[in-house]
Nucleic acid binder design. Structure first.
Length: 128
DNA sequence: AATCTGACGGGCA
DNA sequence: GTGCCCGCCAGAT
């Protein structure tokens, strides 16, 4: 939604990233690129991760990792260990700062969200 | 204003 | 499968 003639990147970009991140279900994770792609930034995954720089507490940044499932952003948490700690707490296995079964816990906003949350989403990839 | 940086991602060797 | 290079775009110095 075109706010005004002004730069659209005023802060919408940030808020958008945060908004999507907040949509990440518990026990699931996503990648910066996935969020970026959902927002249309696709090739600007850096922007997404970088945007997390100002990620408020309301945003589960710990559920966001790089496309390899690596907890690359753990260094930015208050206690870096908090990231995997939170993930493990939510059921996400983490070993060596890496998400276990990343392909299973991976959550794609562009596909899993697909703008129809009101509908009973289809089968899940089965958590286990 | 120009330059360097950054919580990334994909392609090629 | 791993390692290196480029692109991407906005912020900070």
């Amino acid at each position: 939604m075109p706010r005004t003639k002004k730069k659209q990147t005023d802060k919408n970009f940030f808020t958008d990233v945060f908004d999507v991140a907040r949509l990440i279900p518990v026990g699931r994770v996503t990648s910066y690129g996935a969020i970026g792609q959902y927002l249309g930034l696709k090739s600007s995954a850096r922007m997404v991760g970088w945007a997390m720089h100002g990620c408020p507490k309301d945003v589960p940044a710990h559920r966001v990792v790089n496309s390899k499932g690596l907890l690359t952003g753990k260094h930015h948490f208050n206690p870096p260990e908090k990231m995997e700690r939170l993930l493990k707490k939510e059921g996400v296995k983490v070993v060596n700062d890496k998400i276990v079964a990343f392909n299973e816990v991976f959550w794609n906003p562009s596909t899993d969200l697909e703008l129809n949350e009101t509908k009973p989403r289809k089968k899940r990839p089965k958590t286990g």
